[in-house]
């Protein structure tokens, strides 16, 4: 039984592409057969985040227009057996394909793969409609900021209206220092506001930038974000993984600060 998961957020720059790349890679490392589809036609980026930009010959639009066979457009990731990328076109725009064509494409793909992961473009226009058309499951990525949460809420409403049944949340770029200080909403706050189940928490981690520079997803590495993404992959694959306990006030300084600051919010943080 294959899963078709759309990674979406509404707002741009919250980490959809990074999440798609890491989740796809992580699931492949768990032995699943995965295809990543870059649905951001005209502004493709998943290929560079994956480090596969030099291997593109054909793309999604070529497949839909019948210029090549599906197999010709799929790029096999040599580092991760079982992982394939269907890149977007960089020279066309989102209006050149329809949701119906996407559904047909996904129907052709999904019986050969355990997971089909769609990287959705920002916004709620045609590109979004194309990306969610064939999905049976959605992962909404947000950061703990007012603008991102507002857009995420709108996206959840649209996903529900389009009858995407299973909608889950990833809170990305959480800064524990700010959360402890009371200057960033906690994960509980975000979950409470959006009212959808939590799939994972990814801490703000400089290693994400480094990994993107190198074109190598960091899932499974020793970094905090790498661990968090791997936990998300386990959960997507149906394994229950507890949210890791991070950021407890362990240092002596924090303990002392706790004594003096009555307003000091002590938060247990999990990923």
């Amino acid at each position: 039984m294959s899963e078709v998961i759309v990674v979406t957020s509404g707002k741009g720059g919250v980490g959809k592409t990074t999440t798609s790349a890491n989740v796809g890679t992580g699931l492949a490392r768990l032995g699943k057969k995965v295809v990543l589809i870059d649905a951001d036609i005209g502004l493709r980026n998943l290929d560079v985040v994956m480090g596969l930009e030099n291997r593109i010959v054909y793309n999604l639009v070529d497949v839909i227009e019948g210029k090549c066979r599906l197999k010709q457009a799929l790029i096999k990731d040599k580092r991760n057996p079982g992982l394939f990328l269907l890149p977007a076109s960089q020279t066309r725009d989102k209006n050149c394909i329809t949701p119906k064509q996407m559904v047909t494409l996904i129907e052709n793909l999904k019986y050969q793969y355990d997971f089909v992961i769609l990287d959705c473009p920002a916004g709620i226009e045609q590109g979004f409609q194309n990306a969610i058309a064939g999905a049976n499951r959605a992962v909404v990525v947000t950061t703990p900021e007012v603008s991102a949460i507002r857009d995420a809420d709108r996206i959840v409403g649209l996903l529900e209206a389009n009858e995407v049944k299973q909608i889950e949340l990833i809170v990305n770029r959480l800064r524990y220092d700010l959360v402890r200080r009371g200057d960033m909403m906690t994960v509980e706050d975000v979950v409470d506001i959006l009212g959808i189940p939590l799939l994972g928490i990814v801490p703000d981690d400089e290693n994400v930038v480094i990994a993107t520079n190198q074109g190598e997803p960091l899932v499974g590495t020793n970094s905090q974000a790498g661990q968090a993404y791997f936990n998300i992959c386990y959960r997507l694959a149906g394994k229950e993984v507890p949210f890791m306990d991070l950021g407890k006030d362990r240092t002596m300084w924090n303990k002392i600060a706790n004594l003096f600051h009555k307003n000091y919010v002590s938060q247990e943080v999990h990923i």
Partner: peptide
Amino acid sequence: LFHKKKSKQIAKDRLKILLISDRV
């Protein structure tokens, strides 16, 4: 200074109002 509302609480309060009018 001691009773200053934390910015996360302000964000949360604003969002709650905002999202309801967005939703309806």
